[in-house]
Structures are given as structure tokens and as C-alpha cells.
Design a protein around this nucleic acid. Structure first.
Length: 451
DNA sequence: ATGCAACCTTCC
DNA sequence: GAAGGTTGCA
């Protein structure tokens, strides 16, 4: 009984233990997927029918996905008239190629879960309930801007902001009605309302000087300046490069080249941007730059580390994340999980999202907020003073923000990695540039230690 | 070099 | 007051 393929979709055999759309697309990696419940009541719970459709607008097409425990259904919609059957085959081949890349389907998640389970008893506890959580491979620019918006913010609002950004600064690629399931008559009837789909805006658009003021009115708060300035830094630094009319702007292509760099070198580059500190940089490294071992440490990951992995909750008085504490948590967890530590971190992180307690339920729309977490008790009560002892870990890399402006101006972007001696002397204001270059060396040493 | 307030807004 | 922090200044 397999002929349950929704009309217009193609079927890719794929276990939900390898990929759970419900988990991965709503756990705060990407903020741009649209989610549609397919059935208004719980009529079909036999797992033969997908319960949701997920849609994402790419540059040239809208990708639509549905899922059963064993099959991933996919189709794509392009602007213009319906394609000829021959064209359609090609397009869906392209879409399939995109899927493999975006979901990194060549990585065997079962094997990873197995390894993490062997290494970590804590992981073994949550892996049953939260299978199929893997890292997406996103576009770096979108990822960067999205996580600049994430600072001091929650998933619900980040999602609103990112979608607002697209609606305002990117023309609609096409419009679609909400999904209706032809096989099942219980399709949504009342909503004939079509919705427009917008790609993520390119750097050149967001770099315009008047953008930040507008973003303020759109509710971005202080992040408005960060977004505009980062986009401008990016465009200014890479405007000279060939401006072929390809789908990606030079600045976006350059961001992709960070994938070829070492983790620490790529991080150094990211830290130059306004609104990008260690945590945001690490998110981008992990989620779009192939740095699978990187563990972004936020307050929540910190809580997990304190609760389950023996990190002392001694952050002075207030629970603020110091650079030192960040490294302590990050290296501890990296040691526990190994090579794909960043991926493992995502499983733990997602498993703690309270909203996912109601996974298979028919109507997730009733709980649009994905941000709530399991009740966490404030660990402030147990303030141990300076017991945070022996990190012995290599040097952190402070993201002294004062550098950010100057460096961008001064740095010619290629062929400048002069290998200065990695001495730890006192650093004046004037030495910050030097210090930045030196960082590459320091971090290189760091890598070998971690590895 | 470390520590801390301020920052925009929304939601619990 | 906290939300998946970062910045700028003591």
C-alpha cells in the first residue's frame, strides 16, 4: 500500500530517523520555513499520511515538502507557466540535488546517534524521543543575518523579523494557495487566500543606508543597525569582485569561501561584522559553513552543561557569559561528543524545546510558539564563587568589537596572513590589528589541540 | 584584560 | 524579567 503519493510530489525513500522535518525545520536553525497543517482533525493518525507541509522560497523556486515515517515527498514550484513534462523532470532533479545538499543527506545520522550514545549517557536518554535531528546546510548570508537578529531574542520574534525582512526587501517570486490534499477531502476549504513567497534579500539591498531606520520601524530594535552595517561591510569589501549576473552576489560567494577555511580562520572573519559575537559566529560556522564540530554556547546550552555535564555554575554574580566560560562549556561538550559535536549539541538543544513534547499531534498551529522550554530552575541559587578552575584550554578569542570598523577598512582581503610570532604580550589599542592577524596562528594551534 | 550596563521589543 | 548576545565603556 504505497500509492499514497500526494499529487505533484515525488517520493524519496528516507527514514524519519534520518530526518525529522517537524523537528529540524522548527528548532531555530532556519527561520523561514512555512508550516501548514494538512488535516484539521486527527482523522488520520496511521502514519500513512503526512500531517504537515513545509515550504521554503529559494531564489528561483519554492520547495514543498511532506513526510511520512519512511518517505520524504518533495516538489517545487517555479514562476511562470506550468512546465512541460520534460522540463519538470529536470527541475525536480535539481530540487532533489538541493535537498541532498541542504539536509546533508550523505551524513548517516543513525551512525552518529550510535556514536554519541556510546560516548554520552545523557544523550542516550533523549535520543529515543528526538530522532532525526540533523544540521541543515544553509546559505551563509541568510544564516548570518538571521542570527544577528537572534541576539537577546526569542525564536518566535526572530521568525517574524526574518520573514518581515523578506517581504519588505525582496520581490515576491510567486504566489501560492495553501496546500490542499487531493486524496483527502478534508482539505482546507475556507482559505482560498494565496500567499506570496519571497526569497531572502541579497546583501546589496540590505546594505542601503536607509535600511536601518526602516528596520527600526519594523520592530528590529537595535539589531537594525547591525543588519545594515554588516550587509554594507560585506558589500564594500567585495564589490570589486566579478559581478557576474549569477544567482549569488560576490559578497555571498565570498561567505561561501569561508567553508574552505579552518574553523578559527572563518570565525575570525565572522567576528569582524557588526552584531556578531562569538555565539552568533559559531552558529553560522555550524549551520552554514560546514564546521560540524562547533558548539554555539548560549545561556541555554550553558544551563544544559551545568545540569548534565559538570560545568560549575559560577559565573560570578549574574549569569552572563564570559569568554572564558564560553570556552569552558564549548570545549567540555566538544570533548564529550567528538567530531560532530555541533550536531549533537543541536539534538540536545532541540530536545529541550518544550513545544516538541507535542510532536505528532494533529494541530501544532494551536501552539505557534516554539520558543518555550522545559521549566528551568534558575541556577543562580548556587553561586559558587571563583571555583571555576583549570580550563587549561587554549586562549579564547575575544571579539573586541572596537576592531570591527577599522579592520574592515584596513584589510585587503587576500593574501595577507602574515605569520607573526604568537606571543602573548600586552596589547595596546594600536596593536589590535596585529593581534587580529596573530589570532590566526593562535587558533591554528588551538585546532591541533582540540583535534 | 575582565566586568557590567545598555540596548529594542515581545511574550510569559 | 527573560528571550539562543553584542557593544562600548569603565
Amino acid at each position: 500500500m504505497a500509492c499514497m503519493i500526494p499529487t505533484g510530489f515525488r517520493a524519496l525513500p528516507l527514514s524519519i530517523t534520518q530526518l525529522s522535518l517537524a523537528a529540524v525545520l522548527q528548532c531555530g536553525q532556519s527561520f523561514r520555513w512555512n508550516v501548514f497543517p494538512l488535516f484539521s482533525d486527527g482523522a488520520f493518525q496511521d502514519n500513512l499520511f503526512p500531517t504537515h507541509e513545509y515550504r521554503l522560497c529559494l531564489r528561483d523556486r519554492v520547495v514543498c515538502l511532506r513526510q511520512t515515517p519512511d518517505i520524504l515527498f518533495y516538489r517545487s514550484v517555479l514562476p511562470g507557466p506550468p512546465p512541460l513534462p520534460s522540463e519538470d523532470v529536470l527541475r525536480e532533479q535539481e530540487t532533489l540535488a538541493w535537498l541532498r545538499d541542504y539536509f546533508q543527506l550523505d551524513v548517516d545520522l543513525i551512525e552518529l546517534y550510535e556514536q554519541w550514545g556510546k560516548r554520552d549517557p545523557v544523550f542516550r536518554n533523549c535520543r529515543e524521543r528526538f530522532a532525526g535531528i540533523r544540521m541543515l546546510r544553509q546559505e551563509p548570508f541568510e544564516n548570518l543575518i538571521s542570527f544577528i537578529c537572534s541576539s537577546n531574542n526569542n525564536i518566535v520574534r526572530i521568525t517574524k523579523m526574518v520573514k518581515t525582512l523578506c517581504k519588505h526587501y525582496s520581490p515576491a517570486l510567486l504566489s501560492l494557495p495553501p496546500p490542499t490534499d487531493a486524496e483527502c477531502s478534508s482539505a482546507s476549504d475556507a482559505s482560498l487566500e494565496v500567499e506570496s513567497y519571497h526569497p531572502f534579500p541579497p546583501p546589496s539591498i540590505l546594505a542601503a543606508s536607509d535600511i536601518s531606520a526602516t528596520l527600526r520601524t519594523l520592530g528590529f530594535g537595535y539589531r537594525a543597525e547591525f543588519v545594515q552595517k554588516t550587509a554594507k561591510m560585506l558589500v564594500d569589501a567585495h564589490a570589486s569582485e566579478q559581478l557576474g549576473h549569477a544567482s549569488l552576489e560576490p559578497a555571498e560567494k565570498w561567505l561561501c569561501t569561508l567553508r574552505q577555511m579552518s574553523t578559527s580562520e572563518a570565525r575570525e572573519e565572522l567576528l569582524k561584522f557588526m552584531g556578531v559575537g562569538r555565539k552568533v559566529a559559531d552558529c553560522v560556522l555550524l549551520m552554514s559553513l560546514d564546521k560540524k564540530e562547533v558548539i554555539p554556547v548560549d545561556t541555554h546550552v550553558h544551563q544544559i552543561a551545568v545540569k548534565h555535564y559538570g560545568i560549575s555554575s559560577s559565573s560570578k554574580a549574574k549569569g552572563n557569559m564570559t569568554s572564558k566560560l564560553y570556552d569552558e562549556v564549548s570545549s567540555k561538550l566538544a570533548a564529550v561528543w567528538g567530531d560532530y559535536a555541533g550536531w549533537a549539541h543541536s539534538v540536545l538543544f532541540t530536545s529541550d524545546l518544550k513545544a516538541f513534547a507535542s510532536y505528532g499531534l494533529p494541530s501544532p498551529s494551536q501552539s505557534p510558539s516554539v520558543k518555550e522550554r522545559t521549566p528551568k530552575k534558575s541556577c543562580r541559587s548556587e553561586i559558587v564563587s571563583g571555583l571555576a578552575t583549570p580550563p587549561a584550554t587554549p586562549t579564547p578569542q575575544s571579539s573586541s568589537s572596537k576592531r570591527k570598523r577599522a579592520i574592515i577598512k584596513a584589510s585587503s582581503k587576500d593574501g595577507e596572513l602574515d605569520l607573526l610570532p604568537s606571543v602573548n604580550d600586552g596589547l595596546n589599542m594600536a596593536d589590535r590589528v596585529k593581534r587580529r592577524r596573530r589570532a590566526a596562528v593562535t587558533k591554528a594551534a588551538e585546532i591541533s589541540v582540540v583535534a
